[in-house]
């Protein structure tokens, strides 16, 4: 049994991925599949809601790196929201706030997507 789950939904034309559980080297393929799926469907406005994400490892962060350029080349973005302080600390430690917009609340991020389009 995997203790990591990705589910999809939409919020005002933004494709939201809800991450739940423990994202490490072992569960990374699930997130990879999730991104592959959205990109295959040409859904480039991606918001990753981390409310129920309890842990993320470097390999998990790497998945975001792998797709960011493709997504931005298609005029989309990967934004993140609702991180616990523990999860944010890992993002921060590895310099991700310089590369990704991270929001406290999902709706703020959605508004940012709207403002751009």
């Amino acid at each position: 049994m995997s203790n990591f789950k990705v589910s999809f939904r939409e919020n005002n034309n933004v494709h939201v991925m809800d991450l739940k559980g423990y994202l490490d080297a072992h569960t990374t393929p699930h997130l990879e599949e999730a991104f592959e799926k959205l990109i295959a469907e040409k859904k480039y406005n991606i918001l990753v809601n981390c409310k129920d994400l309890s842990y993320i490892s470097s390999a998990g962060l790497g998945v975001f790196m792998a797709y960011i350029e493709d997504v931005r080349m298609n005029k989309g973005d990967i934004k993140l929201s609702n991180m616990s302080p523990k999860v944010f600390n890992i993002f921060d430690l590895l310099g991700f706030p310089m590369l990704y917009e991270i929001f406290k609340d999902e709706n703020e991020a959605v508004k940012k997507f709207e403002a751009k389009s």
Binding site: T28, S57, G62, V63, F64, M65, A66
Partner: peptide, 9 residues
């Protein structure tokens, strides 16, 4: 690759 990307940016 993923680890490299995540850790080193």
């Amino acid at each position: 690759g993923f680890t490299l990307m995540g850790q080193i940016g």
